[in-house]
Write a protein that binds this DNA or RNA. Sequence first.
DNA 1: CACCATTATTGATTAGCATAACAATCCGCG
DNA 2: CGCGGATTGTTATGCTAATCAATAATGGTG
Lengths: 167, 167
Amino acid sequence: MSARKKSASAPRGANSDAGLVAPQIKEPLIFGEIVGYALRRAQFAIYQDYARTVAELDIRPAQFAALAIIAANPGLSQTALATMMGIDRSGAVTLIDALEGRGLAARLPSQVDRRTYAIMLTAAGQTMLARLTERVSEHDRRMTAALSEAEKARLIDMLRRLYDRPN
Amino acid sequence: MSARKKSASAPRGANSDAGLVAPQIKEPLIFGEIVGYALRRAQFAIYQDYARTVAELDIRPAQFAALAIIAANPGLSQTALATMMGIDRSGAVTLIDALEGRGLAARLPSQVDRRTYAIMLTAAGQTMLARLTERVSEHDRRMTAALSEAEKARLIDMLRRLYDRPN
DNA sequence: CACCATTATTGATTAGCATAACAATCCGCG
DNA sequence: CGCGGATTGTTATGCTAATCAATAATGGTG
């Protein structure tokens, strides 16, 4: 549900553009009442732009998240990264494989547990993260330009109350 | 990025639970500043529960959306449904195949355009949609219980301003 | 009528994600 | 010390959804 395609090519049937109105597709009433719907559309719109933003540096959304988490927790294990990102351990493997293959992260042998690696950012990874952070901040500012700073803060607070619920 | 797993099984290394603090995984600073991150987490949390809610009636999220849109626009074409949902026409085919296979929707031959079908809900589809709408409303109320009615309205308004931007 | 656009459909391809299995290693307990 | 269970990284497999191209049938337009 997005209806973000260009000119809504609804079938015009047999009526020209004389006086007849083109049959406009209506949005179901319930969509307007539900928070989850507005949430989904806003998230989708922003995520699209976010993906395009990081793609300019040939980075996928999950990779940026991984870089940021590794930078904030140098030497963490792969499972720690996986649980932090809410993905499976197997997903972390391919994720780090990609980062390591591009020289952005490295698997150092852990000194306390020979099963695990201590994941670190390389120098290239740190500069890449710096450039990404800059662009992502700009992206977020641009996408929320319709909100004042106070509104932005209130929005974040309300969203946190939605997912931070004590269950 | 979700960190919603149970007890954060961060590796404890070699320290017991005596006085040493278990190495807590920190969230990157930038995540807290970005609207898109809070948006993503809230959307994910709510979507999870939403999917489970409709799954109780053996319906997938996209199928509920299709049912609601068809009910609001009886006799629309498949491409109209596809553009409304923001998916490809080929996706609408399999979507309606499933609904038709379960007797919830029907493809009636259009009387004005022999290429298109007029998609309608069957009686079973209408009662199914009614039951779904009931449960989804309850789900939305439950998920947004941390917000007052006024806050909910303000939240929806702000979210709309995020995806309704005039581009 | 001729030409091009549109519709529904099929098939192939891809990406993402969860699941299961497995060897290496760690930890706890006798 | 040694054994059993748990954990870590890894690989393979399957599934779901999304994307794209191609095609036959039909519509609209000059």
